[in-house]
Nucleic acid binder design. Structure first.
Lengths: 232, 232
DNA sequence: CGTCCTTTTGAACATTGTCAAACACTGTGG
DNA sequence: CCACAGTGTTTGACAATGTTCAAAAGGACG
């Protein structure tokens, strides 16, 4: 694989502390590919041969059942996905497609597992990463089960605002229909929910959000670190 | 800790392959306790000091927000819980309470982590277990986002039936209000959903379920291994 | 400019939740 | 053994929430 990408990947928590030789071996075994938007990278049910790393662009993880489809996560650079499947050697539980032109690194699962056994620092990093994935999944479930759609949206906006540096203006990084699906609602419902939030000082112009009454929105959203804090 | 419990625990995938000396050390460092029903073992937000193993009885994992509460899982013997929190040393994201009189082993997180670094087989087992927890969480989310309450219930019944040996009669192992919460609905809604399933050959008498038209129920439920199969 | 897709809006509908009351089950104490 | 309290379950009427379908409006892009 091109050496250009390696430094970015090395910065990931997952690869930061591991032995340099092992890291190089992993990178040599990997493939880099550039994908156009809207390309289905993996399909749920397929065997999991690679750990994926998004270097640039954007990937949607989604799942389908009985003609319905739901977005489970949106992965932005630089992060990995489907770690759990590649460790278990089980079939993918989600599908993945690019949302934008994306550069993705494919690390063969068997190489990941081989290095896991040789490199304690890497093993430690893998287990921490996986634990984090688990915890994020728990938080997503809590969000879904304990909150209404309006509350989920309000909290999503506050989380995005925080990530964007706590200014009153920021922009939503994905299309609204994907956001709707991520939050577990229909696009129509999202559109109406955004309108309802006007009463709480949320102004919407396309992808741009302006929050004018911070306290009111927070009083509605009641953000909670055990659901909304990405670092926990 | 009493040697009586150790053999049971040793049978768990998590401890099966590890070095005997390390296992003994873990067991010596652990505490065993018997708890009465309805006792809150841990509260979300608390620091995670122990990995828990349910040896007998039954534990409910749940979470609260803004006066609402939801059951996230019900743990039966012999299994562990809150592995992810104890690896990350982060605060618990869920609370836990006994549903029945329960016997629980508490293994200090720091001992788990110490053995993780020393014992590659244990490290491997931990990472596989965690990956499984992740995958179960993904399946739960798919169940919630892709299915209606009635469909979730129908699939739950089919899953329970399978676990009970595929007979037409079996019994629900938890109270209906907990089942309702687990499936993301109110007790009232569960009660009505069970009634609707009469049209698909489901007869209910207290905790006992009888399925008379297997094919009809399956046609409604459309079970899918990537959501319902516990072994994937 | 026209086409395609997303977003918004409206109205009807379906699903789910809330509240109140009745009912059923369990275990306790008289 | 029975009355009773306490809890879980069911039922009914109603409210809130969310979905569907159809159509219009807005944007992106060739």
């Amino acid at each position: 694989m091109p050496e250009l990408d390696a430094p970015n990947i090395r910065q990931l928590e997952l690869f930061k502390e591991m032995d340099g030789t092992h890291f190089d071996a992993l990178m040599r075994a990997s493939y880099v590919q550039n994908f156009p938007p809207q390309l289905e990278l993996i399909s749920e049910g397929d065997p999991s041969d690679f750990l994926h790393v998004v270097v640039s662009g954007c990937v949607e993880l989604f799942s389908s059942w009985n003609g319905r489809e739901s977005t489970l996560a949106v992965i932005r650079p630089v992060s990995t996905f489907i770690l759990a499947a590649s460790i278990r050697n089980g079939p993918y539980l989600m599908s993945a497609r690019t949302l934008e032109k994306s550069r993705i690194i494919l690390i063969p699962s068997q190489d990941v597992q081989a290095v896991f056994d040789k490199d304690p620092k890497f093993a430690r990093a893998i287990v921490e990463e996986l634990a984090q994935v688990c915890r994020n999944a728990t938080k997503h479930t809590k969000d879904l089960k304990l909150r209404t759609a309006l509350e989920r949206l309000a909290n999503y906006l506050l989380t995005q605002q925080k990530q964007a540096g706590n200014g009153s203006n920021f922009s939503i990084p994905i299309e609204k229909r994907h956001l709707a699906s991520l939050l577990g609602m229909t696009p129509e419902n999202l559109s109406r929910a955004l309108k309802k939030l006007r009463a709480y000082g949320v102004l919407v112009d396309g992808q741009i959000i302006a929050i004018s009454k911070q306290e009111e929105l927070e009083r509605l959203a009641k953000p909670n670190r055990l659901i909304d804090d990405a670092s926990l």
